[in-house]
C-alpha cells in the first residue's frame, strides 16, 4: 500500500513537471505567434513603440558595435589562419577560402552573435520583464489604456531581431574582408577570383536560408526571455528562477536552430 502511494506521488510529481514544461513551450509558441502578428501589423507602430524599438537597437546593437566588431574580427582572423594553414598542410589550399566562408559566415558568426546578444541583452530582458510582472507595472500600464504587449514586448522583439541581423551582417562582412586579405594578401589583383568563389557559395537559396536562420536567432533571443519573464509567478524570489529557465531554454533553442540549419544544408 505504501509502495503504491509512493509510486502515485512520484507519477503525480513527474506529470505535473511534464505539464508545466509543456505549458512553457505552449506559451512560448503562442507568444512567438502573437509577436509575429503584432510585428506585421501597422497599428503596432506609434510614437511610443518606435521609441522603444530605437532604444532596444541602441542598447543591443549600437552600444556594443565597436567592441563586438573587434572581437568578431579577432575570432575570424584566428579561425581563417587555422583553416588556411591546415588546408595548405594537406594540399587542399584551393578549398580553403570556400571552407572558411562556409564555416565562419554561414555558421559560426551568426551563432556567436546570437549567443553574445543572449548573454548581454536576453538575460537583462528576462529579468526586467519578470520584475515588471512582480511589481504590477504591466497592470499599471493597462490601467492607463496602454497595452504592455504592444508597448513593451513587441518593440523588444523587433529591436532585438534587427540587432542580431545587423551584428551578424557586420561580423560576416568583416570575416569576408579578412578572408580575402589572409588568403590573397592586401592587394586587389585576385578580387575577380574571390568574387567567383563568394558568388558560388551565396546562391539565392543559401542567402534566404541564412537570413531566415538569423531572423529566427533574433526572435529567439527576445521572445524566449520575455515569455519566461511573463510566466514567472508574481513573487520576487521567482525572478532568478525565471531568468535561469529562460537562459537554458534559449540555449537549447539556439542550438536546435543551428543543428536544423546544418542538417538542411549538408545532410
Amino acid at each position: 500500500m505504501i509502495q503504491f502511494q509512493a509510486i502515485n506521488e512520484t507519477l503525480t510529481r513527474r506529470g505535473a513537471a511534464t505539464l508545466s514544461w509543456l505549458r512553457g513551450w505552449g506559451s512560448l509558441i503562442w507568444f512567438a505567434y502573437s509577436a509575429l502578428v503584432h510585428a506585421l501589423s501597422p497599428a503596432t507602430y506609434n510614437s511610443a513603440t518606435r521609441s522603444v524599438i530605437q532604444k532596444q537597437i541602441y542598447f543591443t546593437a549600437w552600444q556594443i558595435l565597436p567592441g563586438y566588431t573587434l572581437f568578431a574580427a579577432l575570432l575570424s582572423f584566428v579561425i581563417i589562419q587555422i583553416v588556411v594553414s591546415t588546408a595548405r598542410d594537406f594540399g587542399l589550399s584551393d578549398f580553403a577560402l570556400e571552407t572558411v566562408i562556409r564555416v565562419l559566415v554561414l555558421e559560426i558568426l551568426p551563432l556567436v552573435t546570437a549567443l553574445f546578444v543572449a548573454l548581454r541583452s536576453s538575460a537583462a530582458i528576462n529579468t526586467e520583464v519578470a520584475l515588471m510582472n512582480v511589481h504590477n507595472e504591466i497592470k499599471a500600464l493597462e490601467d492607463l489604456g496602454v497595452d504592455a504587449m504592444q508597448l513593451e514586448f513587441i518593440p523588444r522583439v523587433i529591436g532585438g531581431t534587427l540587432s542580431v541581423l545587423a551584428l551578424s551582417t557586420v561580423s560576416g562582412l568583416m570575416a569576408l574582408i579578412l578572408a580575402y586579405v589572409v588568403v590573397y594578401g592586401a592587394h586587389p589583383w585576385n578580387f575577380p577570383a574571390y568574387t567567383l568563389v563568394v558568388s558560388k557559395i551565396f546562391d539565392l537559396g543559401i542567402l534566404l536560408g541564412l537570413g531566415f536562420k538569423v531572423v529566427l536567432f533574433g526572435m529567439a533571443v527576445t521572445v524566449i526571455p520575455i515569455s519566461e519573464g511573463l510566466r514567472a509567478p508574481s513573487k520576487l524570489f521567482f525572478v532568478p528562477i525565471a531568468v535561469l529557465r529562460g537562459m537554458v531554454r534559449l540555449f537549447f533553442v539556439l542550438m536546435l536552430i543551428e543543428v536544423a540549419s546544418l542538417a538542411l544544408k549538408y545532410i
Binding site: A48, E128, L131, M132, H135, N136, E137, K139, A140, L141, D143, L144, G145, V146, L151
Partner: peptide, 16 residues
C-alpha cells in the same frame, strides 16, 4: 500600480 521603473517621471507621463 507603480510607475515604470526604467523611465523617468517625464517619460512615464509622456508615454501615455
Amino acid at each position: 500600480l507603480p510607475l515604470r521603473a526604467n523611465l523617468s517621471v517625464l517619460e512615464n507621463m509622456a508615454i501615455v
